[in-house]
């Protein structure tokens, strides 16, 4: 009898650890279902020759899928396109974003038009941005060629040659992501106390010196956050090149995410596509780990 009462008491008044476990359990189960299980299944699939078009039987092939990926020029091309597009668009977006943030931080009387202009590209769906810029760069009907012709330069087919198609995709990515970076940097700028600038002015610092000695160092934490977000998003680049060029001409603008999409959704080659996805996952992990180490050091 006494034991039972104790049991009930323990249930009614659980220790702190039990309570913590009980309260965390629903979230843990949910995460396991929607994160751990799919990732586990993906890794598992990567070891089978699993095809949507291949009927029911899917033989175990060990590391074959990974081996074919590592021997495939198209895979390495996609890795190169993904990494280079990420670097170029991140640096570009950081520079443009910083300029936009400084502009938006100027003491205008009416601030909302500037802020709205900052928000709009960010709020626009990626696929829209891709389609809009595809029209801008269209050979026959695009505004880019229209401007060129007005100043007497011959129009060209932007999305048909590898170099210019690549550049067009990068420009679109910079346009699309600069405003997000600007928002983060703007928040950072507003955290810098006015008094620091006043002190710098008393010391006779020019505007440029103020920017270099006060603004930039205090902005570094925001810049790092912006870089992390942008790099991870950059590695996942899909929508914009998909809507602008479909990865073409040939494979000049095909990113890893697009190659995975083509392999799994179009070819129905789930096994090989999963192996590609695992490799892309590893790439993201490496990059994220590098950033995390940098943050911990700071």
């Amino acid at each position: 009898m006494i034991a039972r009462v104790r049991g009930v008491e323990r249930f009614a008044d659980p220790g702190e650890r039990t309570l913590a476990a009980l309260l965390l359990a629903p979230a843990a189960v949910l995460l396991a279902l929607i994160v751990v299980y799919p990732i586990g299944k993906l890794v598992y699939n990567a070891f089978f020759d699993l095809r949507l078009s291949g009927g029911q039987h899917a033989p175990f092939v060990g590391f074959d899928n990974f081996a074919s990926a590592l021997q495939d020029g198209i895979f390495w091309n996609a890795v190169w396109v993904t990494v280079s597009i990420t670097i170029i668009s991140t640096i570009g977006a950081l520079l443009v974003g910083l300029a936009l943030a400084l502009l938006a931080n100027l003491p205008y009387r009416i601030q909302w038009p500037v802020r709205l202009a900052l928000l709009l590209p960010w709020a626009m769906p990626l696929a829209f941005a891709g389609l809009i810029f595809a029209w801008f760069f269209n050979t026959d009907y695009g505004v880019v060629n229209d401007w060129l012709m007005r100043i007497g330069i011959a129009p060209r087919s932007w999305l048909l040659s590898p170099g210019t198609a690549y550049a067009a995709v990068c420009i679109t990515l910079v346009w699309k992501s600069a405003s997000f970076i600007a928002l983060i940097l703007l928040a950072g700028l507003q955290m810098i106390p006015r008094s620091l600038y006043e002190a710098a002015e008393v010391d006779g610092a020019t505007r440029l010196q103020q920017f270099r000695e006060v603004t930039l160092p205090l902005l570094v934490p925001s810049i790092v956050v912006a870089l992390i977000f942008r790099t991870i998003a950059g590695l996942q680049t899909f929508d914009i090149p998909y809507t602008m060029t479909k990865g073409g001409p040939a494979h000049a603008t095909q990113t890893l995410a697009m190659l995975i999409h083509d392999t799994t959704i179009d070819y129905g080659d789930i096994g090989y596509g999963s192996a590609l996805a695992v490799l892309m996952f590893l790439l993201s992990m490496v990059v994220t780990a590098l950033y995390l180490r940098r943050i911990q050091r700071d």
């Binding site: 087919s157 048909l160 040659s161 590898p162 990865g247 073409g248 001409p249 040939a250 494979h251 000049a252 083509d262 179009d266 070819y267």
Partner: peptide
């Protein structure tokens, strides 16, 4: 996918 991507690239004189 292979035939159309490659054909288009040839017509674009990429290769």
């Amino acid at each position: 996918d292979v035939v159309r991507t490659q054909t288009s690239a040839a017509l674009a004189r990429v290769q």
